Simulated assay, not measured.
Amino acid sequence: MSRTAQNQGFTCENCGASVAPLSNGSYRNHCPTCLCSKHVDIKPGDRASACRGTMRPQHVEHRRRKGLVLVHRCVACGFVRPNKIADDPVQGDDIDAIIALMARHR
């Protein structure tokens, strides 16, 4: 699947926010408002998972090559996947939501 095909806007199934695709060369895989994602991939970008459960953010951690990542867990099947935080100043993730998540998991 091409990055253009993957970089699509969507409506968040958790909070209902309308999420625009990123325009900085990356693509969005979680809602910037509530930070939830959807379990659609087995390997990043393949869209091969039949689960389609909601992926809730569990905590934030730092990865040497990726920087800050959200660690998501699927509420339906328990699958865990890290996702890079979108730190774009215009289209980035809600910093208050990230700080609240970090505060819950000290």
Rank of each mutant, 00 (worst) to 15 (best):
R64Q: 14
R104N: 11
N29Q: 12
V71Y: 12
V69C: 10
G9R: 08
F10C: 08
D96C: 03
T54P: 07
Q91K: 08
I42V: 12
S23A: 12
C12M: 03
L35D: 02
A5I: 14
R65S: 09
G67P: 05
D94Q: 04
C51Y: 04
H72I: 04
S23G: 13
H105A: 14
A50F: 01
A103I: 14
V75R: 15
D96A: 14
Q91N: 04
K66C: 09
D93K: 01
S26A: 10
C12V: 01
C51P: 07
S2Q: 05
T33E: 11
G92S: 04
Q91F: 03
T54Q: 13
P44F: 06
A17Q: 10
C12L: 05
P21F: 04
K38A: 08
S18K: 15
S26G: 04
R104M: 11
A5W: 03
V75C: 09
A76K: 15
S18W: 09
N83D: 14
L101E: 10
A20N: 05
R64A: 13
V60E: 08
G53F: 04
C51A: 01
S2V: 03
R81N: 14
T54F: 08
C74R: 01
S37G: 02
N24L: 08
C31Q: 00
F79K: 10
A97F: 02
A17W: 02
G78L: 13
A48M: 06
Q6W: 14
G53P: 00
G92E: 00
A103D: 15
R3H: 09
C12Q: 03
A20W: 07
C31F: 05
E13C: 11
C31R: 05
D94A: 05
F79M: 13
L70Q: 05
I98M: 09
I99M: 15
C34A: 07
P57V: 04
H39E: 01
M102Y: 12
K66H: 13
A17S: 15
R56I: 13
I42Q: 04
R81D: 10
S26P: 00
Q6S: 07
R63S: 11
G25A: 00
C51D: 06
M102S: 15
D88N: 15
K38P: 02
M102V: 14
Y27D: 03
C31E: 03
I42A: 06
H30M: 03
K66V: 11
M102N: 15
M102E: 11
A97I: 06
L35R: 07
D87P: 05
Q8H: 09
H62Y: 14
F79R: 13
P57M: 06
P44Q: 13
D87L: 12
P44C: 08
D94S: 04
N7V: 07
P89T: 05
I99Q: 15
P21I: 02
N14H: 15
R104H: 12
T11E: 08
G53I: 03
A100S: 14
H39D: 02
R64M: 13
G45W: 06
A103Q: 15
P21V: 03
C51K: 03
I98Y: 04
D87W: 07
S2F: 02
N7R: 06
N83K: 11
I42Y: 06
N14I: 10
H30R: 03
E61V: 09
D88K: 00
N83A: 12
S18M: 09
D41G: 02
R47G: 06
